[in-house]
Amino acid sequence: MKKDLEQQDTVIEVNQLVTHYGQRKILDGVDLNIKRGEIRVIMGGSGSGKSTLLWHILGLYQPTKGRIHLLGQDIHEISFNDMLKLKQDIGVSFQSGALFSSMSVGENVALPLREFTDLDENTIRIISRMKLEVVNLGGFHKLMPSQLSGGMIKRAALARSIVMDPKLLFFDEPSAGLDPVVASEIDDLILSLRDTMGMSMVVVTHELDSAFKIADKITVLDNGKNLLTGTVEEIKASTNKRVMDLLQRRSRHDKLDPADYLKRLTQENYTLS
């Protein structure tokens, strides 16, 4: 009985996920288990597989092997129609915002409601404005994306991602390119959404301050593998060299022996290392 309850409490489960870009292995046996109401931050250096893992969880890529379950459903086994229904329980806030430049802020936020519901226009307008109020953009619905600052674009994109009241919310670098004050405001919004709407969240970020502020748990990826998962305190206390390099922003490049370097450049089966 206890195991069944634990499974019901798990909203995202990734088992031994492996994927390749061509012959290059990007993810190498990644496991992930995220509970209801949890904010899980995924961190790692450039090329560690953070964004690739996110796109796989969203069902945008087919893995080489491994399984992914969202809200109890295997996303590679369910039908196309069931996947469409499942995606209505998922919100995504992209790094660039990904707002449609030809549509106003209000139209961008209302778009999922128009696409996936039969609500009348007045109800759609009210709901979209409510979501803009949630992200502190009340009254900005008539503006075009080109008229917004970077932080406002992020918040408008967030309003669109929550307009369907999703159970799962995903962020790709939510604080990237923002000044510290605006970045802190985005962090506060993420925490508020978790507390008021009960959403479970996955946040891919390289911003340490944001990660430490919002995370219930942090997963650190390195070379496509799950290097460490723990609470903020556990991550900060880790003595793993790779984790310490990440937290202390230390370069990981080893010095190359000139002879070995020349040999690598001239060999027939030259590959990226």
Rank of each mutant, 00 (worst) to 15 (best):
D89K: 14
L265V: 09
V135S: 11
Q248L: 15
T123I: 12
M152C: 11
H69C: 04
M144R: 11
Q147K: 13
D74R: 01
S79R: 06
T19I: 09
M197P: 01
D216K: 13
S149E: 03
D118W: 09
K154C: 06
L132E: 10
I68G: 00
G150T: 13
H76M: 03
R264P: 02
G97R: 13
G49I: 10
T231C: 12
Q16R: 12
P180E: 00
V30L: 08
L168Q: 02
V203C: 04
A211E: 07
D222Y: 15
G139I: 12
D28K: 07
G47L: 14
L119V: 06
Y261S: 03
N136T: 06
L256T: 11
P145K: 10
P258L: 05
K236Y: 06
L27S: 01
L265S: 13
N269H: 13
I186Q: 00
I214K: 01
K3E: 11
T52D: 10
S79T: 11
D257R: 08
M199D: 13
T19A: 07
S46E: 12
S161W: 09
A237G: 04
L111I: 13
R67M: 00
G224E: 04
L132S: 10
D165E: 09
V41G: 00
V14N: 04
H56G: 02
I235P: 12
L86E: 05
F80S: 04
N269M: 08
I26C: 06
H56W: 03
I214D: 02
D118F: 13
G47D: 08
D222N: 14
S175K: 01
N226I: 14
K154H: 08
H20N: 12
F170K: 03
L132W: 14
D195C: 05
G45C: 05
Q147A: 13
V105T: 09
Q147T: 07
L193W: 01
T19D: 05
Q95G: 12
I39M: 02
D89P: 13
H141P: 00
S102M: 13
R194W: 01
K87T: 03
P166V: 08
S48Q: 02
L119K: 10
S200V: 10
M103Q: 13
H69S: 05
S210M: 15
A237W: 06
A110Y: 05
K241A: 12
K154L: 08
S128L: 07
K241Y: 07
D257C: 14
M144N: 11
G151C: 04
K50W: 06
L27K: 03
Q267E: 14
K85C: 01
L265A: 09
I235W: 08
R252A: 10
E133Y: 08
L71G: 05
V18W: 05
V163Q: 01
V134C: 10
K87W: 10
M144L: 14
K131C: 12
G49V: 09
A156C: 06
E115C: 02
G139K: 12
P63R: 09
A98T: 11
L86F: 07
G37N: 15
L99C: 15
G72S: 05
E173G: 02
